[in-house]
Nucleic acid binder design. Structure first.
Lengths: 193, 193
DNA sequence: CTGATTTTGAACTGACCGATACATAACTGG
DNA sequence: CCAGTTATGTATCGGTCAGTTCAAAATCAG
């Protein structure tokens, strides 16, 4: 055919993702992206078309891996309440530097809102999947009696998503893990028996 | 003395604040700030020194007015639980367009983190004042028996600040007021009797 | 080896960035 | 009315922005 790529596309997306995650969309220049990925400008534009498009790819890579991890926890062992506690726990990062970066989705929502383009679509899709996963687990929790009776799955899903978002903002503030755990415990106490 | 200002400084800060609030720090250019305030470049730089300094002024204007409003609610009538409910309510903006902008503090935290400059200092000060106000109200709530016994005021303050931050992120997502109210009610149910 | 196809690197594009220089305008104390 | 001082408007600064151009390099089918 023709000259083959000298780099792995997914690896490049992942490196770009970390650059965007660390500095935000606007503050990450195309030059930064070249240095982060190790690619030349031509390769970046030839492969990803534009900064916005590369950001969308980065965002989707982030949401994809993150949602899979969350799904794995929710599909794991234990009562629904225990699994939800594990999800909140996983949102409380161990590494201090990573914690300071917060969540790429929350950071993007705050910086860009939900723009009227593919980035907005990706953000909306992430929200929807999170709400669906949480709501399903809440239904299971009512059945296995680890959660209270009469809870509205959709409402509690919003509550849990709001709680994880709040935790990520706390992380950005530099709040200690201890305080974040206390917050997670209080939130769970609202829905557990 | 000399030639007098042709504009009101506080009014200019407020207009700049709205520009930063709507588009974020990085995406708001000095040109945007000139147009938003109605000032020429010279006047902007003569008065505020730099974009960063004007942002700091804008942020402090935002936090000042917002904290005063919150303090007024917490100093108002009703049980502590009722006053906390009123604070959460006030974080659920009525106007749909304003709601979409979220909170300038949360947006800034997400975009810039807590930078090692006066902006970071202002963000930290806002966090501290919020936590102090909430903790004090929680202490009152334990005394007036509208909140549960044995609550740790500092922990609950973090929980409430996390909840308001989460609500602001939901607002950025475009979540309905109805869902936001459901979230606020669930959060309160964790600490009320 | 050749020709078609694609990637790559380097130089470059016009536009815009935050910030400044400076002449002129507007004011006040003397 | 003038000297001193500050505010303003215009033009401009060097630098960086996202994105493009284009020739050289690398590959493979024939």
């Amino acid at each position: 055919m023709a000259r083959p790529r000298e780099f792995d596309e997914t690896a490049a997306v992942e490196k770009a993702m970390h650059a965007f995650w660390a500095h935000g969309y606007e503050a990450t220049s195309t030059q930064d992206l070249c240095e982060a990925t190790g690619l030349g400008r031509s390769s970046v534009y030839n492969t990803f078309s534009s900064k916005k498009a590369l950001f969308r790819r980065s965002l989707e890579h982030y949401t994809g891996t993150r949602l899979d991890k969350r799904q794995a926890i929710l599909d794991g062992p234990g009562t629904a309440a225990e699994r939800l506690a594990a999800v909140l726990d996983s949102a409380i990062e161990d590494d201090a530097d990573e914690r300071r970066r917060g969540c790429l989705v929350v950071n993007t929502l705050a910086e860009l809102g939900v723009p009227d383009d593919e980035v907005g679509t990706a953000l909306q899709a992430d929200t929807d999947r999170n709400l669906t996963m949480f709501a399903e687990c809440v239904r299971e929790g009512v059945l296995d009696a680890s959660l209270r009776d009469g809870l509205d799955p959709a409402e509690v899903a919003e509550f849990l998503l709001s709680t994880t978002s709040g935790l990520r903002v706390m992380a950005r503030r530099g709040t200690s893990r201890r305080s974040m755990h206390a917050v997670a415990d209080l939130a769970l106490s609202a829905i557990t028996r």
